[in-house]
Each structure stands twice: as C-alpha cells, then as structure tokens.
C-alpha cells in the first residue's frame, strides 16, 4: 500500500484515493466534427506505458480533489504530483 502525496493534504494512504487513468486527455472541443475513429480513440484508447505515466488521481476519502501524478508503472514510484491545471512536469 503506497503513500500518495496529495498536493492539498500531504501524504496519505493509498486506500483514500481513487484512480482516474491517463491525464491530459482533453474532452474534444468539437465532438460532432470527429470521425468515428477519432471519437473511439477518445472514448476507449489510453496510453499504457511501461514506465513514467501521467495519470489522474482523486483524493476520494480526503479532500475529494483531483490531481495529476507522474508515476512509474514498473516501480509504482510517484515521480511528481501536480494540480490538474499544471503542465506535466519533467521527471527523470
């Protein structure tokens, strides 16, 4: 069970959090203009890297706020956490 550093509350137990999948996938501005393929990409396709992954978490049993994290999917190590309105930080 990991310790996840909520940007607002500080480090808390993993059980308090809800996972939200890949970050930085914007809802299409003009969904009607998308082809079926483009729409399917938005609905069903997400990156699935083995390594650093920018993803969304929500502190569901805490402040209930969403944030983003870069986490290494091999080691599960959290390399960075940041607010949803921030750019993905550079991690090593």
């Amino acid at each position: 069970m990991q310790l996840i550093p909520c940007p607002w509350c500080g480090p808390r137990e993993e059980v308090e959090f809800h996972y939200g999948g890949q970050a930085h996938v914007a809802y299409p501005a003009e969904s009607a203009a998308l082809s079926d393929e483009e729409w399917a990409k938005f609905v069903f396709f997400r990156d699935n890297p083995r390594g650093p992954f920018a993803e969304r978490w929500s502190h569901a049993a805490g402040c209930r706020r969403w944030f983003n994290a870069v986490r290494d999917t091999r080691s599960y190590e959290l390399l960075a956490v940041y607010r949803p309105d921030q750019e993905r930080p550079v991690t090593t």
């Binding site: 939200g20 969304r56 929500s58 969403w66």
Partner: peptide, 13 residues
C-alpha cells in the same frame, strides 16, 4: 457525485 466532480474538476474547472 464522483462523475459530476470528475468533469467539473478535471475537464471544466
């Protein structure tokens, strides 16, 4: 409620 919050916070803050 989670659904409302998710869209509100992550998509249309």
């Amino acid at each position: 409620l989670d659904w409302v919050e998710e869209w509100l916070q992550t998509e249309w803050p």
